[in-house]
Design a protein around this nucleic acid. Structure first.
Lengths: 207, 207, 207, 207
DNA sequence: CATGAATGAGAATTCATTCAT
DNA sequence: TATGAATGAATTCTCATTCAT
C-alpha cells in the first residue's frame, strides 16, 4: 500500500465516521474548485455550516484533511488497479481495463482526482506526502510495463517512444477530471470507450 | 482580443523592459513550480536577488505579475494560431499545424503554460482575468470547428463524440507542459510528430 | 439618511456588541489623538490589550472602524438635530437648541467629533464615505435655512453675509472638540450658553 | 523667534532658492489637501513634475519640508503680530488688528495654516517641532492679555469666561483656513471685517 | 539637477490553529 | 460537538530614503 496514512493516527475523536466523510467531501469539493492553498479553513466550515474552529474537533489540521482525501482516493484506486493487474489479461485488454477503472475513479472521486492533478507534483516533496511519489512510481511501472509488453507482443506500434506514449495516456486520462462532472451526459464507461477508441485507433478515418 | 491587458496601464514605470522580462521569467518559473498562491513575493525576490519590496518598483502587485505572464503567453499563442487559421489549410493539416504550434509555445513559455493549466480555471472568475475565459471560447471555436470540418469532409471519423475528441486533443497537448522541460531530449517538433501520430493513427499496430 | 453604513454589512460576526463598542471607543480615542493615518492597528490593539490580528475578528479593516465611528456619531447627531428641527421653534431658539445639542454631542462623542474635524474633508472623496458629504449638505441646509429665516423675520442682522455667518457658527461650535475634554470644568450646556452669548450678543460691552 | 528652524542647517545645496519655494508651495498644497501622513513624497514629486528621489536634492526629508513650511508661516505671522503688539493700540483696536493680520496670513499661507490646524497638536510633542508649542504659548499670551486688558478697561464684557472667549476667537479665526481660497469672493480684509462685526457685536439684530 | 533602481523598516491584513466555555 | 475569541506567524504591500550614474 502506498498510502501509509490509511492507518490513521487517532486524529481527534474516532466518532461518527459519516460526519467525517461528509466534511471531507465538502472540503474536497472546495479544494478542487479553489485550489488547496487558496482554500481557507473558514470557507470549508462555512460550506459545512459550522465555524472554522469546530473543524478541529474532527481533523487536526487542514493538511490532514487533504491527506485523508488523497490517500482515500489512492487506496481505492490501487485496490482496483491491483485487481486488474492480477487478472492476467493481455496488454491491450489490460490497458482497456485500466482506462475504464480510471474513469470510474474519476466518477467516484472526481474532486480528489482534480486535487491530485493540481497539487500532487509539489506535495510529493513533503515528507507527509511521499506516498504520492510512491504511487506514481508504481503507476508508471504498471502502465509502462503493459505498454512495453504490448510492443513486444506486437499489439502496439513499435515506432513510438514508449515513455512519451505512457505520459500521453496517463495525462489524457486523468486530466479529464478537470471537466468531468458526475451525472453528466456520458457514463464513465462510455467516456472510457471513446477515449480508448481514439487512443487505440486514432481519429483519422480509414476505409 | 483575449488579453486586454496587453495595453498595460503604466504600472510602476515603463522602464527598462529587459529587466521586467527577466523578473517575469523568474516569477513564472516559481509560480509554475510552487503554484501561484503558494509562491511568496519574497521567494520571487530572493530568486531575483533583490528584496521583496523592490519588486514593487517594477510591478504593482503579485497579481499583476501573474496577469502579465498569462497575457503575454496568450498574446503570443494567438498570433501564431491566427496565422495558422488564416492559412486556408485542410482540417488535418490545420490540426497538425495547431498541435505543432502548441508544442512550440510550450517550449517558449513552458512556465506560463504550466501556470495556465493549474490556475486558469479559478482565475477566470475574477474580473481581471476574464480574458482567460474569452481565450478559451475562441480556442474551442478554432479546434472544434476544425474537427467538425474534418468530420464533414471525411478526414476524421464520424463515430466519435466531437466535443469529447476536442477535450481529448486539447488536454493531451497542454498537459505536456507539466513534464516538458525545454532543452530536453525531444524537440517540440519531434514531440508534436509523435503526439500527432498517436492521435491520428492510434497506438494499435496494424499491418 | 446620511449614514448608509448604519445598516452594517455583517462584518466579521455580529457578536457581542459591547465588545465592539469598547474597541471602537478605544480606536476613536487613538485616532483622535494621533490622527487616523498615523494610528497603527497595532497601537489600537495594544491599547485594547490584544494582538493586532485579533482586531480583525471584530472588524474587517482599520477603515471600517473609522467608518463605524463616524457613522455612529452622525446617526446620533442627526437624531437630535432632526428632533430640534421638527420642534417648530423660532430661528433664534432653533440656533440655541442646535448649538446646545452640538456641544452635547461633543461631550458624548468627543473623539469622533475630533476625528470628523480632521479627516472628514479628504475622506469625503472616497466612495465609502460619501455620507460625510451628504451629511454636510443637510447640515448646511439646516443652519443656513435657520439663519435666513432669522434674517427675514428680523431676529438676526441683515448686514452680514449669511454664508460667512454660517461658516463662522459651524466652525466655532465644532472646533471646540479639539480642546474639549468630557468631565472638565464646564458642562456642555455651560459652554453652549457662553458661546451663544458671544455669538448672539458679541463680546463688546454695552450699557 | 519661536522657530529656531529658520536658521536652516544647510540642508542640501543652498542653490536656486526660487525652486525650493516652488517645491515647498507644492508640498504645502498637497499636505493641506491630503494630510501630512497621507501625503507621499512621490505625490509631491508627481505634482512638481519630478521623481520622488529628486526631491532629496532639495530637502533632506519629508519632515524638513513640513518644518520649513510651518516655520516659514510662523515667522511671517510673528513679524506682523509683533508689529501690531508694539503699536500701543487699545484692546479693541488690537483685537481688530490681530484678526485682520490673521486673515491676511490665511490669504498668504493658506496651505500652511491648514496644515498647522490639522497637525500642530500632535507635532508639538516631537522635539523638532517644539517651536509650535512655544508659538502657541506666545499666541495665548498676546490674545488673552489683550482680552483681559479689554475687560479691565471696560471695552469687553466681564460676564464671559475669558479663556473660553480666547479659544472661541482663536479657533474662529484660524479654522477659516479650511474653507478659505485665495482669490475668492471676499478679500481677507472683508472677511476680517465681517468676523469682527460678528464677534464684537453679535449676530442678533437690535434697534 | 534629475533619474532609475533599489533598500529596509514597517504597515495592514490573512489565516491556521488553540482553547475555555 | 460546537462556539467565540483570541494568538502569532506569515504575507503582501507601502514608502521614505539612498545612491550610482
Amino acid at each position: 500500500m502506498p498510502n501509509s496514512n490509511s492507518d490513521r493516527k487517532k486524529t481527534a475523536v474516532s466518532a461518527a465516521p459519516e460526519r467525517r466523510e461528509e466534511l471531507l467531501a465538502t472540503a474536497a469539493e472546495v479544494f478542487a474548485a479553489q485550489g488547496y492553498r487558496a482554500t481557507t479553513v473558514r470557507r470549508i466550515a462555512d460550506e459545512a455550516g459550522m465555524l472554522a474552529g469546530s473543524l478541529y474537533y474532527h481533523f487536526d489540521s487542514k493538511e490532514s484533511m487533504l491527506d485523508e482525501i488523497l490517500s482515500g482516493f489512492l487506496n481505492d484506486l490501487w485496490a482496483r488497479y491491483d485487481a486488474v493487474l492480477a487478472a492476467g489479461l493481455g496488454p491491450r485488454e489490460t490497458i482497456e481495463a485500466l482506462v475504464t477503472e480510471s474513469f470510474r475513479e474519476i466518477d467516484r472521486h472526481h474532486a480528489a482526482v482534480a486535487i491530485y492533478q493540481k497539487e500532487s507534483k509539489h506535495l510529493q516533496t513533503q515528507p507527509r506526502f511521499t506516498y504520492l511519489a510512491d504511487s506514481q512510481v508504481k503507476f508508471e511501472k504498471a502502465w509502462l510495463g503493459t505498454l512495453e509488453r504490448g510492443v513486444a507482443e506486437g499489439a502496439f506500434r513499435a515506432d513510438l517512444d514508449v515513455r512519451l506514449t505512457y505520459r500521453f495516456l496517463r495525462d489524457t486520462v486523468w486530466v479529464a477530471a478537470s471537466w468531468y462532472r458526475p451525472g453528466g451526459q456520458h457514463s464513465p464507461e462510455e467516456i472510457a470507450r471513446q477515449y480508448l477508441s481514439m487512443v487505440l485507433e486514432g481519429i483519422t478515418l480509414r476505409e
